[in-house]
Simulated assay, not measured.
Amino acid sequence: MDIGWKIVSTGGGLLAGLVAKKIVEFGWQAATGHDAPNEDDFQSNLVEAVVFSVVAAATNTIIRNLVMKKASSWYGQGAKAVAVDA
Rank of each mutant, 00 (worst) to 15 (best):
T32L: 05
E39I: 08
T61W: 11
F42Q: 04
V8G: 02
Q43F: 13
V84K: 15
V54R: 03
V55H: 03
K22Q: 15
V67M: 12
W28F: 10
W5G: 02
A71T: 10
T32A: 02
T32R: 13
I63Y: 05
V54L: 14
S72E: 13
A56D: 03
G17V: 02
A20Y: 08
H34F: 12
L15R: 00
G76I: 12
Q29Y: 11
H34V: 05
V84D: 14
M68C: 01
T59I: 11
E39A: 11
I62G: 05
V19Q: 00
T10F: 14
G13V: 02
V51P: 01
L14S: 03
M1V: 12
L18A: 10
V67A: 08
V67S: 05
A16C: 04
V51R: 05
G76M: 06
M1N: 13
G27S: 09
N65F: 15
M68F: 08
A49C: 06
H34T: 13
S72W: 04
G4L: 10
G17Q: 08
A31R: 10
T59Q: 03
I63S: 03
L18D: 01
A58I: 15
V54H: 03
T32W: 14
I23Q: 06
A20E: 00
A58S: 14
V82L: 12
T59N: 06
G33R: 08
N45L: 07
Q43S: 15
K70C: 07
F52P: 00
I62M: 09
G11I: 09
G13S: 07
L18Y: 06
I23F: 10
F42K: 13
K6H: 09
T10P: 00
A71E: 02
V47A: 11
G33D: 10
A58R: 04
M1Y: 14
L66Y: 01
V54D: 04
Y75W: 09
V51H: 01
G12H: 07
A83L: 15
K21G: 04
G12S: 06
V51F: 06
E39S: 08
N45H: 12
A71D: 07
P37T: 05
T32N: 09
Y75C: 00
A57V: 07
V67E: 02
G11H: 06
S53H: 01
A86T: 12
Q29T: 05
L46Y: 11
A57C: 05
S9W: 01
E48I: 00
I7R: 07
S72Q: 12
V51Y: 02
W74G: 01
D40M: 10
D2M: 07
